[in-house]
């Protein structure tokens, strides 16, 4: 493994452990609640529908089938909170690749090492990729174990497909944070871009489904390529995932080229 990737992972270690533990606790807890309620799906369904009226319900993906295993898992892990948490984590890690060390001043010495600037961005990104992958793999294992324990009955292949989409969305936004940092070197700018794009993208994708006046913008939302294909119900939306992966690659290339051209730390 390249030295700088290893170093990046060391810097990420605490965050990776923290987010993994947090997400696993959150997912494990909610999935175990399902186990205690699945015998009365009507109550679960009714209480959920009462709690989330109208537009909120749309944001949560409709929730009409929350009484079923697959509907419940979709709502808690892959609809709003799961992606929200992992995207936040990705944005923070992506920010720590370039913008944060540039603003704190620690990037300067790294930059004067015999590492090509393009390599620097790439090796940092591989660190981000591996960090997110670690969190994704562990949370996947926890979901698989918990959902089988709770008797949700979702096919393993579909969970894998949905989880891959979740990972791709998070990787996309992490790469956005890294790319904005590589281009302008400002932590706040990177976080703002990710925050606005993620929130607006999510709203457009979920509410836009039932509102024609914003549905045209759904193609701009990274969540569209994750949620629209309903991977937890239907399996791999290969084309959509390729769009996400391709967009991430374009962003990474932009990051590499932008960072290679500019003054650092001014």
């Amino acid at each position: 493994m390249p030295t700088l990737t290893l170093k990046t992972l060391k810097e990420y270690r605490r965050a990776i452990i923290g987010w993994t533990v947090g997400m696993c606790a959150f997912l494990g807890m909610y999935i175990s609640i399902y186990a205690s309620m699945k015998d009365s799906p009507d109550i679960l369904s009714r209480s959920a529908l009462a709690k989330y009226p109208g537009a909120l319900r749309d944001l949560m993906g409709g929730m009409l089938d929350i009484g079923t295993g697959v509907g419940y898992l979709q709502a808690i892990a892959y609809q709003m909170l799961g992606p929200l948490l992992l995207v936040m984590c990705a944005a923070i890690l992506g920010n720590r690749a370039i913008a944060a060390p540039e603003q704190s001043g620690t990037l300067e010495l790294t930059l004067t090492l015999p590492i090509d600037r393009k390599q620097l961005v790439l090796q940092r990104w591989v660190g981000l990729f591996l960090g997110l992958l670690t969190i994704a793999v562990i949370t996947l294992l926890v979901i698989l174990a918990a959902q089988s324990g709770a008797g949700m009955g979702v096919p393993v292949g579909h969970v894998l497909a949905a989880h891959t989409g979740l990972f791709l969305v998070a990787l996309f936004f992490g790469t956005v944070a890294l790319a904005v940092g590589a281009a302008v070197g400002r932590r706040q700018t990177a976080l703002t871009v990710v925050g606005v794009w993620a929130v607006a993208g999510y709203v457009v994708e979920t509410l836009g489904r039932n509102a024609d006046w914003i549905s045209w913008a759904r193609w701009l939302s990274p969540f569209h390529y994750f949620l629209d294909g309903r991977p937890l119900y239907a399996g791999w939306p290969v084309g959509d995932y390729l769009v996400l992966a391709g967009a991430t690659a374009v962003l990474l290339l932009t990051a590499v080229l932008a960072f290679d051209r500019r003054d650092v730390g001014v």
Partner: peptide, 19 residues
Amino acid sequence: PKVRARIGYLPGELELEGK
């Protein structure tokens, strides 16, 4: 980048942080 391996550099405002 190869030439930078032959240079020793001390930044004016050296920042070291973390655990």
